[in-house]
Design a protein around this nucleic acid. Sequence first.
DNA 1: TTGTAGGCGTTATCAT
DNA 2: ATGATAACGCCTACAA
Lengths: 338, 338
Amino acid sequence: MGVTIKDIAKRAGVSVTTVSRALNGYKDIRPETRERILRIAEELNYRPNAVARSLVMKKSQTIGLIISELTRSRTGHDFTFNIICGVNDRATAMDYDLVLSTTDPSKQEQVPYMELCRRRQLDGVILMGIRTDDPYLKEVVESSIPCVLIDVPLVGDKCGHVTLDNERGARMAVEHLIAEGHREICMINGHAQAFVSLERLNGYRNALKEAGIEYRPERVYFGDFEEASGREGIRQLLSRFPEMTAVFCASDTMAIGAVRELKDLGRRVPEDISVMGFDDIELASFVTPALSTVSQPVYEFGSKAVDLLIRMFDGEIGTAEVLEPKLEIRESTAPPGC
Amino acid sequence: MGVTIKDIAKRAGVSVTTVSRALNGYKDIRPETRERILRIAEELNYRPNAVARSLVMKKSQTIGLIISELTRSRTGHDFTFNIICGVNDRATAMDYDLVLSTTDPSKQEQVPYMELCRRRQLDGVILMGIRTDDPYLKEVVESSIPCVLIDVPLVGDKCGHVTLDNERGARMAVEHLIAEGHREICMINGHAQAFVSLERLNGYRNALKEAGIEYRPERVYFGDFEEASGREGIRQLLSRFPEMTAVFCASDTMAIGAVRELKDLGRRVPEDISVMGFDDIELASFVTPALSTVSQPVYEFGSKAVDLLIRMFDGEIGTAEVLEPKLEIRESTAPPGC
DNA sequence: TTGTAGGCGTTATCAT
DNA sequence: ATGATAACGCCTACAA
């Protein structure tokens, strides 16, 4: 079936060694011989067998993108997709192939990430969607295979991460609300098993502090990033803090849930309550009112992750890549009582 | 680094052959020997090297998912993502690894699909997003490697496809419009290099015919599935056919564009003009008014594609999998003048 | 039931 | 400048 260097060697009347060297651009080969070999390879439409090469080189030119709970969360859709795009594009550009894999902690998968890595000899992996309490997180970070985490701020010898300056993003969001005149600001946060939740909470708190507004922990509802928890969150907060005029949500999905629930409750957004999201998913600009939110350069998360990984292949140690958020003001926020 | 069957053999005091057979469940091996080998493999945390195995077996237990223009089209987002999920989940369940790859015909990539296939010894590929005028389509179908196309109705010995009954879907959409009382119905179609456009056009035409409404080709605008072309399309159609009361769009993205343009033009949806979409992307139910549309079981496209592929591995010839559309009536359609 | 030997396609070492 | 030869980790006749 496939033509191999052996076929070329035979046809060119040389040894496979010579063919291999000619093909790989070694210098110690007579130009004419090289020409001839290259020509024959061309004629025969030869394609190197990456599998054989991986075996002997112990390097597969392949990186793995491992996504936790790919299918389940709706929140992830847009975010995940953009990561995939970024990773794929950059990997392709850098001449790496990409294998996609997913895990589902709830399914108690016994054969986790590293299984795949060793089996397929992946040169490195990019991990996303992992919770801080995921039992395999430790395994991955401790393993010798280079890895890059998305939104999990760990660094190690062969482990780095890329994330957003979440504290800053949240702070910008709340500062905007304050600048508009709000003082009674609640927060609907993600679950505590995500580092981003903690950092966004810090941002919320710091913004209040700087404005001289008291931080009250009971004004923070912990949801799970999904729409339903946004609905639930706003309902609870509203009943306990009827004086609230604005809410900052740690995800657009929750923000959308909050807006919908508010609508059901007969409250207007932003006239009665301002709602700020986080992420800037595609939906954010399509819903009514269009969502004011904090935008993350998600595609860059993916491409930076690949770059970081490849730098570690080249011997560098893991680092942290912290990207900058950008405020995206649309229609869901306005001065109170406006 | 990695432990191999050689290590196990040494430790167990047997030959690698015996180890290999024990591990692969051959029967011609003494139970005690097998037990011992299995135990040692466990102890050593042995993992078979898929690369080595692929080399000798000429089978990689890997399928490729090749997506044309992954990043560029916004239309594709939701559709593509769901395909990825379906393919990934099913492939994992069937014990195949997945390599993701993309092509961009506009970039004149010289090393197309088959390159990847041969290089990585992919057992088969799933292709999506390919235009009928893509130069590589022929190459793929003619090649000996099993392939499944999404939305391109070709079958061959080792080539099958999965698609929707697009004619029926479009017919259902237009029939719904007609049932609501519309008779002046225009269409915003996708580009002619997609088979689905042609079939949806057929559905539109057939629905009109069955209702005794004259089909007028000039009432069909050909866009490119993207939002901008929905805007452009509705503008042109409206100026030429002011009597129009409804429009059927071949994609939700174009429908959303049409709705937005109508809004800009001061027309109300659905009071002045009813708008029907196609695809039922996530956005469809979030925009205002929520989009009436034709739903495709996209996730199933992905999983069915994997199933079909694996059946071809087992010797079956390519077949066509045609899935059923489902009407999703929401708020963007209503009786005319309502 | 188990072992020997050869090979999968490639690269690397060491001669020549 | 080129060629044997030996890996890489695994599988599979064929022997014993």
